[in-house]
Design a protein around this nucleic acid. Structure first.
Lengths: 366, 366
DNA sequence: AGGCTGGGCGAAACCGCTTTCGGATATCGG
DNA sequence: CCGATATCCGAAAGCGGTTTCGCCCAGCCT
């Protein structure tokens, strides 16, 4: 069928037309291609009987209009792009699968596709965005890991390309975004630990450009202030966003003759907290009794550390869905400035926090 | 510039042409569109001077041919699709980010895009593949989480659509794939533990359709045989592919008057092993001394459990690259049957394994 | 000088679809 | 019974590229 070019010589027979097209279908139905198009696209100026005949035939032959041709003709692009964050390399983001699934699913119910791109070693991040746009590969972007003064935001705005950001980026011009309330969440964690009786706090700051790192630290400082903690009872160390970072934070805080060891260590990420738990345990302290350690994110494995990690958990899937919702509003022409929702993560209390035992007892340890 | 329809009435001005097209560029260059196309696509029947003028102009105006129009005209589709495995929902695959990054990167260097789709709640998995194909959205598929007699494989073969599978699927017809040697890896793990002195083994089998689950169990059985373990010293339990599954496996193996507790518990996945470590520790045994527990995968957090997890680690990124390489060979017409590489994961020895202490000592515990 | 060759380029068809425009037929009112 | 109005559908012009075909003209040969 179709146009398989048979070739007696036995050389590679190629160019078989992949599938049926609108002309084939029209011919089979005994109508013009235009009529098929009308039938498939819900126009009203077509006899109901004709429409049903065509629809039936299309279903029978498993006809789907070529999305490329359709989008070209319509002058629309029904694809949204997500560029994997550069630092996602080797970062093993456990939420990405859920997040992408949510994005793809939300897009699919609007008949859009999800294009996932990456920044190759030999490229510049911004170049990737420009290339995707110039080639007309997408009609909008989902952006995560926003940094302060994120260049992507200004470029996309200049190019008049719809986008939505997960996170904030401290720009003076408003842009559509959705964020967790990092600040309130960490401050709330300090409140929680303070209420348990802790007086000596440490915070593990992140060596990371992303805005959320800054906001979480600010949240910690806010918590310090509103619980009137004494300066000499508050320490901040700054480490990479990894479990090894968590370990080295503990080394800084606990080793050496530091007489003011914290009883509560607030971490801005679960992976960091997990390293911290490991390091504190290795020093002979009981996490959750001698020392409380908290995380942020809600990674699944946090439930299986020893002790299980108390953390702030984010609703990944819902975030993905909402981002798509917002992006569509923007693509439909809504005022981008109105989208600035902030969601609150939920405290998942497991066993890495608790009332502090006597500091003296902790000090007496080897 | 271009065709912004200004509109005095103040109503929404739309239909601004997104970007410059080949006709604009041709006009600016004073040549025909065909010449621009030739210049951009490396044809030789064009004067070098003309080509350079056009290339320069294109760079200056940041012109990129519309990928949709180009692919339509060429009759090619430069997109590869990856359908997120159904069970990836809430599964928090920590490798996905790395895997996708590798795919997207390898595809990008061949000027192809990565389309990520998902199976919506209201859909059937196969439908998704059919729809993507019928709509001409992709020229090939990357398939993971293959199951025995995977229906996707037969459908794609029938439709003559190129694909490559990560994993094997026990089909009688050959198909292009790449796999880790699950069987040898787990058998090797048994060897390793046996060499450490273990005699009483348990294996945690997975309640999962995926072929790798079966192959890993077979690997265990192979290890049992070639080390001549006694039947009464070998137990197999079957649990879900989660940390909770690991916990319940330990409950089955250790609780109740079972007098033949294993000293080595081989797990077919790190998440499961992590649950098992937690459960064994909670029962008062020292993991790595009283009981050895091993995993498979190499999840990053495995390095921070207590004790750190000994496991078989897979090179995610390299797998992604190789899959793309294979897929392109197939798309170029290579015989699919020739692609059946099997790679060996590497043993990462940390601290969850060790020589067994006396079984009696373990039994004497509370 | 004239014919031939071939390099360089333009014209036009085409990819598969949408959408406007207008024509044909059926239906209705008077 | 005739013209007006609806209703339904076909023709054709795009969308933005690629590619075939053939023309034009410069350069070469004789």
């Amino acid at each position: 069928m179709a146009s398989t070019k048979s070739n007696i010589s036995g050389r590679r027979v190629t160019r078989r037309r992949a599938s049926i097209n609108i002309n084939d279908l029209a011919e089979r139905a005994g109508v013009a291609p235009a009529t098929v198009s009308r039938a498939l696209n819900g126009y009203t100026d077509i006899a109901e009987a004709t429409r049903e005949r065509i629809l039936g035939l299309a279903a029978e032959l498993n006809y789907q209009p070529s999305s490329r041709a359709r989008q070209l003709a319509r002058g629309r692009v029904e694809t949204v792009a997500f560029v994997l964050p550069r630092n996602s390399r080797n970062t093993h983001d456990p939420f990405l699968s859920d997040f992408l699934d949510a994005l793809a699913s939300a897009l699919s119910s609007r008949d859009h596709d999800l294009l996932v791109a990456t920044v190759r070693e030999d490229e510049d991040e911004i170049q990737v965005y420009r290339r995707l746009i110039a080639a007309g590969k997408c009609a909008g972007f989902i952006i995560t890991n926003s940094r302060d003064n994120d260049p992507r935001i200004s470029v996309l705005r200049d190019l008049n390309m719809p986008f939505v950001v997960y996170g904030r980026a401290s720009s003076n011009v408003p842009y559509p975004h959705l964020d967790m309330d990092n600040e309130a969440a960490i401050a709330g964690m300090v409140d929680h630990l303070f209420a348990l009786g802790h007086k000596r706090f440490a915070y593990v700051d992140l060596e990371e450009e992303a805005t959320f790192a800054r906001l979480r630290r600010i949240g910690f400082e806010l918590g310090v202030r509103r619980n009137a903690l004494l300066d000499e009872n508050v320490a901040i160390v700054r480490v990479p966003h990894t479990s090894a970072g968590g370990q080295s934070a503990i080394a800084t805080l606990f080793d050496g003759g530091n007489s003011h060891r914290p009883t509560a260590v607030v971490c801005p990420a679960d992976v960091v907290a997990i390293g911290a738990i490991q390091a504190v345990s290795a020093r002979g302290y009981a996490v959750g009794r001698d020392v409380s350690i908290t995380g942020y994110d809600g990674v699944p494995l946090g439930a299986y550390t020893a002790p299980p990690l108390t953390t702030m958990s984010q609703p990944t899937r819902e975030i993905g869905q909402q981002l798509v919702d917002i992006l569509f509003r923007v693509m439909e022409g809504a005022d981008p400035a109105q989208f600035d929702a902030v969601m609150m993560p939920t405290l998942v209390r497991r066993a890495s926090d608790g009332s502090p035992t006597l500091v003296e007892a902790a000090r007496a340890l080897p």
